[in-house]
Design a protein around this nucleic acid. Structure first.
Lengths: 239, 239
DNA sequence: CAGTGGTCTAGACCACACG
DNA sequence: GTGTGGTCTAGACCACTGA
């Protein structure tokens, strides 16, 4: 179809990556560009999709590495489930890193989403989920302080606000309304997930409802494609 | 946080776009780059996200234009629905373009997905969905020829294989298993949707099941974010 | 410190649309 | 033909890692 260098680099890179053992380091970018007869800019463009697929990992100041094949977390969307329990089902070890708990004041977006007045005090929980020292998800939950106080997160919090609320048993949770989006990583999210700006991410925006109809949690989740497979069964016919 | 030109360009571009009337043309890229004191490469990077949001549209050989605000198609994923009927609910005019119908032979992927032997004759239907002369979705359906023959698509096909099968009433359809992914556009898909390579897309891969348990359709759908909002209600609790 | 990836520049050439 | 966006190059400098 098209004989752009980009295409050629993609196929050459695919073979190169496939030919290398897991964990091994690729040649440096200037070296690879020289070998493949292209500019570094074009080479880097071609490398992007491989990182999105989770096949390679770039680390500034260190190098680019072939990633060992990681089992994918496969989940149906009908039931709300934390990454932790999903990982447990897949027997995939995950851990939490970079936990930040903040008290904030409800602004435009969070006030509307949580159905509270602007200025309502909120607890904001932000953390990165790792598997095998690789960030794979970035999660931000926002809740009214009377639902969850910052103090409750100081001990024994393992990463899932959902699991914490379920364990506590109050409030009683019923369902989540989740918007599903595809976005390019902003600089902030890219840094948290150790990927490049504009890399593709699956993005969930969810409101969690309690039995009394109250919105108890408003969350943003960012997932690295290649580590997650989400699916849904859609029935045919009218609402 | 970071004083990279990229950030500055993004905010300057945001103001510029917001300040211009719909349908108006932006200055050319070299001109804009000069005005904003950056290289064309950086400018183009900064413009990407705006195209993904559907705020601007670039057309090779013509220029870059501010897009009139288009109503978003919002859909729950619980019920399988064609873009056409979704658009009808939103009273958004859509039309089909670039219809291609092919007869192919089942290979690795499609044979497994359709649960037929390799080599089974298949009908492949490929088309782009437009609203307001803007491609917003690219759809590829693959079905066994005994479910749908190419001849049936010659007249009166308006873009939805689902609607066609439902109208025909045979086979009886029950549900679809849909995988939800986020990907960067390949060169081919980018061309079909008139976007840039690596632009972010929402991607559905679906198997459509008939009452007898047979897989009757295997489809790939690519959606421009900014024109679609998909959501799902997830219940809390065990499987 | 040396070497890596991350960002940016200036300029070139190509593909395309339109008069 | 002219002007637009699409691709690519060569080279520079920055930010980060680890010896």
């Amino acid at each position: 179809m098209s004989q752009y260098p980009f295409r050629r680099l993609q196929t050459e890179l695919a073979s190169l990556i496939a030919s290398l053992p897991a964990e091994s380091r690729l040649p440096s970018e200037p070296e690879l560009a020289r070998r493949m007869g292209a500019s570094r800019a074009t080479l880097r463009e071609a490398m992007r999709s491989f990182e999105g697929q989770g096949l390679i990992r770039r680390r500034q100041g260190v190098g680019t590495f072939v990633v060992a094949k990681v089992p994918v977390m496969d989940s149906g969307l009908e039931v709300l489930e934390s990454i932790e329990s999903l990982a447990a089902r897949t027997s995939l070890p995950v851990r939490m890193g970079e936990l930040q708990v903040r008290e904030v004041s409800a602004g435009d977006g969070s006030a509307a989403a949580l159905e509270v007045p602007e200025g309502t005090p909120l607890t904001q929980v932000e953390r990165v989920i790792y598997t095998d020292n690789r960030p794979i998800a970035y999660l931000v939950d926002t809740l009214p302080v009377d639902v969850l106080a910052a103090a409750e997160l100081q001990t024994g919090f393992t990463g899932s606000v959902l699991d914490l609320l379920l364990r506590r048993g109050d409030p009683k949770l019923t369902q989540s309304r989740t918007d599903i989006r595809a976005i390019g990583a902003t600089s902030e999210v890219a840094r948290a997930l150790q990927i490049q700006r504009d890399d593709v991410l699956l993005h969930f925006v969810a409101q969690l409802y309690a039995k009394d109809g109250r919105v108890v949690d408003y969350s943003f989740s960012y997932f690295l494609p290649g580590y997650f497979h989400f699916h849904v069964v859609r029935r045919v016919g009218k609402t």
